[in-house]
């Protein structure tokens, strides 16, 4: 499994909670499969509290570069507050909120989906999602970033938005028109139906496409079915106020031109596709099994009836 090249190695006391995560419960869980894999450096760390009690805690993960690495575009001071204070507060408050609750011991992705509670948001949601969003945001940038993506990603961008320039315009528009606090996203969307037992026809690659979305406050694509997040920009004012004050459009432009890590975005796309392919293979296998079962169960009774009537 190819990991996101930007991820920092986890400390040895941590383990990867995502490896134990099996998406199963609700629709919302299905698309987690992709996200936990490329964010599997999101570690849960076990600390011994006292001699007997073991508690699981989320830890504040540092950005995959020094805090001054994005100067002067994103200042060290901004990082000291944005990562050192805001992100840390989300982590600390989340740990306090979940201690001793049913959410204690769950992975971050599970916590987000459970606490989202199909839109009837539980208190832990904001902190859990903000922890995840900020991890994802730091990894969406790199020193000397920006420019243009290449390969498969560029091809998809051109296919789904017309051109890279049109994509940039749309992404900027989404980020600048998020009224209030929130995030703008590029996501890879599967075209699937979630209603009851809808039969999803075998999806082709053309059914999956790149989409631009915006979300209020802490909400992220993990809570929407079949959206695999690839890129995000934080448009809460704290993300840019020290460097750009009210000039949000300038911050968004410079983020696109000089900060985006297209390697990270490409790598996330690759991961999403791998996860989708794996699940489709699994579904196909199940479908065949079902088919075989039904053909056998249709075929078997017939001779039995004959057999019965024979013995009569």
């Amino acid at each position: 499994m190819k990991l996101l090249s930007l991820s920092t190695p986890d400390s040895t006391t941590c383990y990867l909670s995502s490896s134990a995560f099996l998406p199963s419960h609700s629709n919302g869980f299905q698309n987690l499969a992709s996200t936990f894999k490329f964010s599997n450096n999101q570690a849960r760390c076990i600390r011994k509290a006292g001699a007997t009690k073991v508690t699981a805690k989320f830890e504040l993960k540092p950005p995959p570069y020094p805090l001054n690495a994005l100067e002067p575009i994103m200042s060290q001071e901004t990082f000291e507050y944005h990562w050192g204070k805001h992100h840390r507060a989300y982590v600390d408050n989340l740990n306090k909120q979940i201690e001793g609750t049913d959410l204690d011991g769950k992975s971050l992705e599970e916590t987000i989906v459970i606490a989202y509670n199909n839109g009837d948001i539980l208190p832990a949601f904001n902190n859990a999602a903000q922890v995840w969003n900020h991890d994802f945001f730091w990894e969406s940038m790199k020193p000397g970033g920006g420019g243009k993506p290449s390969g498969e990603l560029l091809k998809l961008i051109e296919r789904d938005f017309g051109s890279f320039e049109k994509f940039v315009d749309q992404f900027k528009l989404a980020a600048s028109t998020q009224f209030g606090s929130g995030w703008a996203w590029l996501a890879y969307k599967e075209n699937r139906l979630d209603v009851g037992n809808a039969v999803n026809p075998l999806a082709t690659d053309e059914d999956k496409k790149l989409v631009i979305l915006k979300s209020p406050n802490a909400v992220n694509p993990l809570v929407w079915s079949h959206h695999h997040p690839l890129l995000t920009i934080d448009v809460l004012e704290h993300a840019y106020y020290l460097d750009y004050q009210n000039r949000r459009p300038d911050y968004i432009s410079v983020f696109m031109n000089k900060l985006v890590s297209w390697e990270a975005v490409s790598s996330r796309l690759e991961q999403a596709k791998a996860v989708i392919a794996e699940r489709e293979r699994e579904e196909e296998r199940k479908r065949r099994e079902e088919e075989e079962k039904s053909t056998t169960s249709e075929a078997t009774p017939t001779p039995e009836i004959f057999a019965d009537s024979d013995t009569d």
């Binding site: 507050y81 204070k85 805001h86 507060a89 809460l236 004012e237 704290h238 106020y241 020290l242 004050q245 009210n246």
Partner: peptide, 12 residues
């Protein structure tokens, strides 16, 4: 309570 109302002075 928008951050723009206090951020330059009170930060987080």
């Amino acid at each position: 309570v928008w951050e723009h109302a206090y951020y330059l002075q009170y930060k987080n």
